[in-house]
């Protein structure tokens, strides 16, 4: 899209002025600021993250799980659309479900709506942050930053404390 715009704009400028350099420079001046702006994250101000925690991992070969509660203090519904964490080469929200037969399974959660004035919990047995392709082991007692991505293109980075492998909740 942007490249096309640059081409179109450059061609238009070149044809008119026949000054290639000036044309390109003009096009770049118009496009570059928006490119830079697009990469600057917009912090989310309406969601509060409560009680983040993760289980320690044994090495890096298995996916780790992290949990937290999202509280929507704003006056619009917003959705959690994804996750990023430097410690994980592939992070996403998954959902565990257990049916009436005691059979548990897990699948990608998709977007998760956080109602106005309400909360959504990522907790064991339900939604969870699945951190795959670990770049380093999750070591008990340490923390790592995790960025939550929202439907309005805002994001929020939280420090997630790492509890033991057998931790059952935010209290450890």
């Amino acid at each position: 899209m942007l490249q096309q715009q640059i081409q179109i704009k450059s061609e238009a400028v070149m044809n008119n002025s026949k000054n290639t350099l000036a044309g390109l420079a003009a096009a770049l001046c118009m496009v570059l600021p928006s490119l830079v702006a697009a990469q600057e994250p917009i912090p989310n101000t309406q969601i509060v993250v409560e009680q983040p925690w993760a289980r320690a991992s044994l090495g890096t070969s298995r996916p780790a799980g992290a949990y937290l509660t999202l509280r929507n203090l704003g006056d619009t519904v917003i959705s959690l659309t994804g996750l990023e964490a430097d410690i994980s080469g592939m992070a996403s929200v998954h959902q565990s479900k257990t049916d009436a037969n005691g059979i548990s399974s897990m699948s990608p959660a998709g977007d998760i709506e956080i109602p106005v004035g309400g909360t959504v919990a990522l907790e064991p047995g339900g939604y969870h942050a699945m951190l795959m392709k670990l770049q380093a082991p999750l070591i008990e007692g340490e923390t790592f930053p995790m960025t939550l991505l929202f439907s309005d293109d805002t994001e929020l980075t939280v420090d997630v404390p790492i509890f033991g492998m057998g931790a059952r909740g935010p209290e450890g």
Binding site: T98, N101, G102, I103, S105, M106, S107, P108, M130, M132
Partner: peptide, 22 residues
């Protein structure tokens, strides 16, 4: 008990296991 391999591109090795967890 029940168990089944479920394909999931967003999981390690592209699959997870559904299983009786009782």
């Amino acid at each position: 008990i029940y168990y089944q391999r479920n394909e999931d591109e967003a999981a390690p090795d592209g699959y997870t296991m559904g299983h009786t967890s009782s």
